[in-house]
């Protein structure tokens, strides 16, 4: 199905308002390929009809579906590996020392997608820092899209997803085969709570965190939104905590209150002390 310029404009305005994701012209193909299945499913013959329904705002849940369809949920286990190496070799050992009196550690991932990122961390904790399991360990994953969160909660992955970045040793230890899919064992799934949260809406229930993961999501937003979100992160990141962004993302020229800390090829951000 083809999209008319005025309808594309409407869609990109809607997406920007609802999710802050910027869809520049040239992304018509993306809108066509992601929305055509929804149009058919909802019984429309064209994208024009779908947009008309959206404009009328009469069909319950349609807007949410459209927004979800236009998010990019690509992720993988141990994506980019370096952030995980940095957490394993430096940051978590440091936090174990820094928090040894309170015995509490909190991690928040604000673009959790289908869960591979936090499950990678959860497996790493079980492998290398089992003492944390007796702490008050809070791991929260949030995302705008309900669909990806449902999958994250289930912790069930296809062979293709399993092939991407998951060490065979961990597959053996922490997964069970279910038909053609692989599901994480319950004790790993139970380490994480997943819930819906739109980064451009109020951050209700986001805890004060020692580690904030916000990888590969700012990239979809414009500079103003990036600035606003980085500012809000400073309010939920503990003063001595660590923020991770994606490999193509930075705080540079957006928020001067962060200092970059590097280790090998990995890097994270801390809040500058005055």
């Amino acid at each position: 199905m083809n999209i008319q310029p005025k309808d594309f404009e409407f869609i990109s305005e809607l997406i920007r308002k609802e999710s802050a994701i910027v869809l520049e012209s040239g992304k018509e193909y993306l809108v066509e390929s992601r929305l055509s299945p929804i149009a058919s499913e909802e019984g429309f013959d064209s994208l024009e009809q779908l947009v008309t329904a959206l404009r009328g705002n009469k069909k319950f849940g349609l807007k949410g579906k459209v927004v979800e369809a236009l998010t990019t949920n690509e992720t993988s286990f141990y994506r980019d590996i370096e952030p995980f190496e940095m957490m394993r070799t430096q940051l978590i050992p440091e936090l174990l020392e820094m928090r040894k009196a309170e015995k509490a550690l909190t991690v928040w991932c604000g673009a959790a997608s289908t869960g591979q990122e936090l499950y990678s961390l959860a497996m790493m904790i079980r492998e290398h820092f089992p003492e944390l399991l007796s702490w008050k360990l809070t791991i929260l994953g949030t995302d705008l899209s309900k669909e990806v969160l449902d999958k994250a909660k289930e912790g069930k992955y296809s062979q293709v997803e399993i092939n991407r970045g998951l060490p065979a040793q961990l597959l053996i230890k922490y997964f069970e085969k279910q038909g053609t899919e692989w599901q994480l064992k319950k004790d790993v799934r139970d380490m994480i709570e997943y819930r819906e949260l739109n980064l451009i809406k109020p951050w209700i229930g986001v805890p004060q965190s020692d580690i904030v993961l916000l990888r590969n999501v700012l990239i979809y937003f414009d500079a103003e939104v990036k600035k606003e979100i980085l500012g809000k992160v400073r309010r939920v990141l503990r003063p001595d905590g660590f923020l991770f962004l994606g490999a193509a993302e930075t705080t540079l020229n957006l928020d001067e209150n962060y200092a970059r800390r590097t280790s090998g090829r990995g890097s994270c951000y801390t809040i500058k002390k005055d």
Binding site: Q159, I162, N163, P167, A168, Q169, L171, I172
Partner: peptide, 14 residues
């Protein structure tokens, strides 16, 4: 997978 890793393979792709 278990058999191969136990025998000394380091990684496994399906």
């Amino acid at each position: 997978v278990v058999k191969a890793i136990e025998a000394g393979a380091n990684e496994y792709i399906m």
